[in-house]
């Protein structure tokens, strides 16, 4: 465990120096602060629109951090050869993978916290307020990012960063559209496309499970049971992806 923490701390220090992180955080802050512009064109709905855009920014920019930093996490260590002296130490490879993963999760957590503080402050300045569902929505965004990072680190252990980023991004988009895969129009009945998309529905995590954006924007309460279910669903997927990442890295020559 101590070795995992050592790798995680180092990954945190490394990622916090990554320019990509600051560029994405800058754009996230700009989007949050610029949400008022969309509020103006929606008469009487400005607070609702600001809330909606704040949560969407956290979700999208958090995912971009997970994808772009996560997809290069292990690969960069191989490419820069820093991995040689680390793996020659008495640590298990899974400890290295988990350390890298937890370091990035810490970065994502801090980024989300920064975005939360900016959005809550901005909402209060604009005369709005937040309730429990707002924080439940952010919690589920975090769980979603935990899952997406798991997928990013799995790919980071087996493919190049660009390929990894493309695949994770595709999964991110597909994960938000799994409902479409299931509810196809009748003209798809009996086609191969239907079978393929239905299979995709079952093997791609449903990222909409973590979407409480409209509930948070409209202050509609969400049950604790649903939030717990979504957390367990996300963590189960994450555990599976991490096991696969550890197994993939275990047998890899560096």
């Amino acid at each position: 465990m101590k070795r995992i923490v050592a790798v995680a701390e180092n990954t945190f220090r490394e990622s916090i120096r990554d320019k990509v992180l600051y560029v994405l955080l800058f754009f996230a802050a700009c989007t949050i602060l610029g949400s008022k512009i969309l509020g103006w064109i929606s008469i009487g709905q400005d607070i609702k629109i600001i809330k909606d855009i704040c949560l969407a920014s956290m979700s999208v920019f958090g995912a971009l951090i997970a994808i772009f930093v996560g997809a290069s996490l292990v690969y960069k260590e191989i490419d820069k050869k820093t991995l040689y002296t680390i793996l020659a130490q008495p640590l298990h490879r899974y400890e290295f993978v988990l350390g890298k993963y937890l370091g990035l999760i810490a970065i994502i957590g801090v980024s989300l916290l920064v975005m939360t503080v900016i959005s809550v402050g901005y909402l209060y300045v604009m005369g709005g307020y937040v309730t429990l569902v707002w924080f439940q929505a952010i919690l589920l965004i975090f769980v979603k990012l935990v899952l997406v990072t798991g997928f990013a680190i799995l790919l980071s252990a087996v493919v190049s960063p660009i390929m990894g980023a493309i695949i994770v991004f595709s999964l991110y988009v597909a994960g938000h559209a799994t409902g479409v895969f299931k509810d196809l129009p009748p003209q798809f009945d009996g086609t191969v496309s239907k079978q393929v998309l239905e299979t995709a529905y079952y093997i791609i995590p449903n990222l909409n499970t973590f979407n409480l954006q409209s509930e948070a924007a409209n202050n509609v309460a969400v049950s604790g049971a649903y939030v717990s279910y979504a957390v367990v669903y996300g963590l189960a997927w994450t555990a599976m992806l991490l096991i696969l990442a550890c197994l993939a890295f275990e047998g890899r020559d560096v």
């Binding site: 790798v7 820093t82 020659a88």
Partner: peptide, 29 residues
């Protein structure tokens, strides 16, 4: 690997660390 100290041909370390921090990091590993 507990019994080995390894130096690769071109040792690469985290560039943002100092030698003291590097020794500290490997000591923790």
């Amino acid at each position: 690997r507990r019994m080995v100290g390894y130096m690769p041909e071109q040792p690469y370390f985290y560039e943002y660390l100092t030698p003291k921090e590097t020794i500290e990091f490997y000591g923790r590993l």
